[in-house]
Structure formats: C-alpha cells, structure tokens
C-alpha cells in the first residue's frame, strides 16, 4: 500500500521544503521506496536542498505534457538509497499542473512500487498548493510558533477538509499531523513565543514533532544535504524522531523544554 503525503503550510518560509527533504530522506533510510515531488512550479528549490540541482534534465511538467518519460525525469539520490526526486519546472506557468496530469503521474509512481510519495507544496493557497494537497492521504502541516503562520495553518486545514480528493469523494478524511519548526523553548519560557501546547489547543491537530531552531538547518541547505543526515544536530534528531513516530514508533517528544545548564554557566556563560 503506497501513501501520498503532502507537506504544506499556507505561509511561506516556515520550512516546508526542509521538512519534505528531511522526511523523504528519513523514510528512504528506513528502507521504504520514496519519491519526493516539488510542486512549486516556477520556483524550484527542492533540488537545491537535496543537492541534486545539477542533475535536473527533465521535470514534472515535461512528464505531464508527455515530453519525457517518468524514468527520465526521476533523479536517483546519490546519498540515500530508495530516494528519488521529481523536480519542478523552472519556466512553465503553474496551470500546467492539471488534475488528470498530476493524478496519472502519482498513479504511475504507485504502480512502480513506491511506498511513499511526498508532495512538497508551494506556499499560498493558489493552484499549485491545491494540486499538491488534492491527492493526499496524509498531510504534514508545517508551522512556526508565530501568529501569521498558525493562522495560515488553520486556513490550510480548512482547505484540506473541503477541497482534497478525500473530502470531495466523501471517504475517510486526510490524516493530519502537525510539525512545529523553529521552536525556541527559552523564548517560550520568557513568555515571548507561543508554546507548543497553546498551538495544539488552537489548531487541534495531533503533534508529530517539534523541530528546534537550529544552526544546522542553514548549514545543511548551504551544502545541499538534507538536515536529517546531520545526526548530531538537534534538528536532524528531531526529524529522525518525526519519521520514526510517523512509522508507528512510540517515542517521547523532545526539544520542547530548555536544557538545564549548570547554574554557574547560566549566570556567567
């Protein structure tokens, strides 16, 4: 049984592509055949985050327009076995993504034996974002502990519940998971950042994991390595936990509280 996952948020810059690259890599590391698709037509970036930007020949729109075969456009990741990337087109207009076209590409991927198909949504609630979420079985909502991001997450949840294929066909609803990124427990303690519990109370979506604010996210994107491969960084570990939890492991949540430093270091460090 293959599953289609959309990584979405409404708001831009909250970490959708970082998250899509990390969880796709994590799922592949665990032995699952995984394809990750960039739906951000015109603003391709997933290739850069995964470090395969120089290997792009054909893209998603080429396949939909029958200008290339799926096997020609899929890029096999060099670091991680079982991971394949389908880049977005850099030039065409986003209306090139049609329900029929996207549906048939997803169908072909499922027939080729992919266990997970991760759809990296563009920001906003326009056509590209709607296409990315339409076919989803599960949704990862990426949010920052910040008012505009939480509000936009709520909008996207409303859209998932009314405009997805599952909503239209009246079947089981899309399964929702919250991933809270750029979390800083120290600022939460100081009272100037929304706490994870407050956000859960407002959005009422089960928490898949908290990713702490971490320097390694920028460092990883600089070098084109998904942050989940930085196993010593808190962000890398947080994404490892997220993948394991998604696959059914019962792991306690981490990175939600300030790590206790010795008193003297706290005062003078």
């Amino acid at each position: 049984m293959s599953k289609i996952i959309v990584v979405t948020s409404g708001k831009g810059g909250v970490g959708k592509t970082t998250t899509a690259a990390a969880i796709a890599t994590g799922l592949a590391q665990k032995g699952h055949m995984t394809a990750v698709i960039d739906f951000d037509v015109g603003l391709r970036n997933l290739d850069l985050i995964l470090g395969c930007e120089r290997r792009v020949v054909y893209d998603f729109v080429n396949i939909i327009k029958d200008e290339a075969r799926l096997s020609q456009a899929l890029i096999k990741d060099k670091r991680t076995d079982n991971l394949y990337i389908l880049p977005a087109s850099q030039t065409r207009d986003k209306d090139a993504l049609t329900h029929e076209g996207v549906g048939s590409v997803l169908n072909d991927l499922q027939e080729q034996g992919f266990d997970y198909i991760v759809c990296d949504s563009p920001a906003g609630i326009e056509h590209g974002a709607l296409m990315a979420l339409y076919f989803a079985d599960e949704a990862f909502i990426v949010s920052n502990p910040e008012v505009s991001s939480v509000r936009d997450s709520d909008r996207i949840l409303g859209i998932l519940q009314s405009r997805s294929r599952r909503a239209e066909k009246g079947g089981e609803p899309v399964k929702e998971h919250l991933i809270l990124t750029r979390y800083d427990p120290q600022r939460v303690d100081n009272g100037d950042m929304l706490a994870v519990d407050d956000i859960l109370e407002i959005l009422a979506v089960p928490l898949l994991g908290v990713v702490p604010e971490s320097k390694s996210v920028l460092q990883s994107s600089n070098s084109g390595v998904p942050v989940i491969l930085d196993e010593i960084s808190p962000a890398g570990q947080a994404y490892q936990d997220i993948v394991s939890r998604f696959l059914g492991e019962d792991l306690p949540h981490r990175f939600m509280r300030v790590e206790k430093k010795p008193l003297l270091r706290r005062l003078f460090g």
């Binding site: 939460v188 009272g191 100037d192 407002i202």
Partner: peptide
C-alpha cells in the same frame, strides 16, 4: 520578569481563528 507577548498572541489567534472558521 513576565514579559508576556505570547499570551497576547494566543488570545488574538483564538479570536481571529474562531471568526474565520
């Protein structure tokens, strides 16, 4: 010192989200 802009954020969000829903 209790500098609580986070609770203001929560209150504002609850109001606007209830309205928009």
């Amino acid at each position: 010192r209790n500098n609580n802009s986070a609770s203001t954020a929560k209150d504002r969000l609850q109001v606007i989200i209830a309205h928009e829903r």
